[in-house]
Design a protein around this nucleic acid. Structure first.
Lengths: 190, 190
DNA sequence: CATAAATTTCAGAAATTTCTGAAATTACCG
DNA sequence: CGGTAATTTCAGAAATTTCTGAAATTTATG
C-alpha cells in the first residue's frame, strides 16, 4: 500500500472498523479509498493502491454494488469500469440506513410477525410471545418513524436533526400558543 | 437444543442474525433466550437449553455484560449467578444505541478529527480532507441529535417517534400560529 | 470470427473467529 | 484452613470467512 499518509490512515481505519460494521476489511478499505478520491478509480488502480489481488477487488466491488454504495462509470474510449461514491454524503447516509434496515431489521420483523401468529403451546411460550410482541411493537414504531423521515429532503432533515429534543419543548410551546390563539383570536390552522 | 418451538425459532433466528449485528451466533442465541425467559437463568440452564459448552456460555455472558445487555442476579441460598435482560425494552434500545455508538461511531469520529488536524501534503490530500470534513460534520450532527434525544423519557421519545416527519410540518404551522399570535395578541412565550 | 482486454468465477490456501475440554482460579462454607 | 461448587481462563481444535491465482467468461474491436 503506497498512499499519502492522511488517506492511508483513513483507509486503514475503515478496514479495521469493517468487521464491526458487518463488512470485511477489504470492502471497508476500498470504500474509504473511493470516498476520498476525487476521480473515479478502476479496479487496477485499487489493486495498486491497496496491494490486494485483482479477484478480491472484483468481489469486493460487487459487494459494494450490492449495497448501492458505489457508482459504476465509464470514460469515453476506455472499456474499463470506473467506480466512485456519490458526492452527496446525505445520500450516502440514506443508502446506508436503507440497506442496513433491509439486512439487519426486516428479517427479524418478519420472523417476529410469523411467531406472533402461532398459538402458544404453554405458559412459557405465552410469556415469550408477550416479549416478542413488545419487540415487534418497538421495531414497528422505529421503522415507521424511519419511513417517514427518510422522505424528507436534506434541508428539512438537517433542521430536524438540529432541533433534536427541543422538538418536544416546541410541541409543549405550540400547545400553549394554540390555546392562547384560541382565547384571543381564531387561528386559521388547527 | 430442546426448547418449545416458538422460543427455539426465535433463538435460532437471533443466532443467525448475530453475524450481521456484529455479535456471534452463541451470544445472539443466549441473548434471545434470556430475553424471552420469564425467570433468570443460570449458566447451566443455558448450557442445557442451547447444547453448547459451559466455557462458551461463560465467555458469551461476559461479552453480553460488556455490552450492558444482561443483568446478573442472585437468589437467596444459591451461590450461582443468574442472568436476565432488563424488562423495559426502551431501556434495552437505549443501551444498544449507546454501546453501538461507542463501538461503531466514536472511534471513527476520533480518527476523523485527528486527520483533519494534519496539514495536507498535496492536492490529493486536500481533497481527501474536504471529504473527511463532510463526514465529520455529518457524524457530529447525528451524534448531537442522538445525545439530545437519548435524554428524553420514554413517553416523550414515543411521542417524537410517532410524529415522525410531521414535526417539520408542525414547525411550519407553529411559525404561522406564532405570527398570527403576534398580529392579534402578545403571546407570553417566545 | 479471431483476438485482446477486462472482468468474474471458484477451488483451495491463508487468516480469523468461534468453540471446547481440561486446568486454574475464585467464592463460599463448615 | 480444607473442601466443594461455580466460574473463568486458555491452548488448541473446529468452523467460518477472506483472499488468491489460475482458468473461464464476457465484452469490444478490427
Amino acid at each position: 500500500m503506497n498512499l499519502p499518509p492522511i488517506i492511508q490512515s483513513f483507509v486503514l481505519h475503515f478496514g479495521e472498523m469493517g468487521s464491526r460494521w458487518g463488512i470485511n476489511r477489504t470492502v471497508g478499505q476500498i470504500y474509504a479509498l473511493l470516498y476520498v478520491s476525487e476521480e473515479p478509480l478502476c479496479a487496477d488502480d485499487i489493486v495498486e493502491a491497496l496491494g490486494i489481488s485483482r479477484s478480491n477487488v472484483s468481489m469486493s466491488l460487487r459487494e459494494l454494488q450490492a449495497w448501492n454504495l458505489v457508482i459504476m462509470r465509464h470514460l469515453p474510449d476506455d472499456r474499463r469500469d470506473f467506480f466512485t461514491t456519490p458526492d452527496d454524503i446525505w445520500q450516502i447516509l440514506r443508502t446506508l440506513a436503507e440497506e442496513r434496515k433491509k439486512r439487519e431489521v426486516d428479517p427479524t420483523l418478519s420472523v417476529l410477525r410469523e411467531l406472533l401468529m402461532q398459538k402458544a403451546g404453554n405458559e412459557q411460550e405465552r410469556y415469550a410471545q408477550s416479549r416478542l410482541a413488545e419487540m415487534n411493537t418497538l421495531i414497528e414504531q422505529l421503522t415507521n418513524w424511519y419511513d417517514d423521515v427518510k422522505r424528507l429532503d436534506t434541508e428539512r432533515l438537517a433542521t430536524l436533526l438540529s432541533l433534536g429534543a427541543k422538538v418536544t419543548k416546541l410541541l409543549d410551546a405550540k400547545d400553549r400558543i394554540v390555546s392562547i390563539g384560541r382565547r384571543r383570536a381564531e387561528p386559521d390552522e388547527r
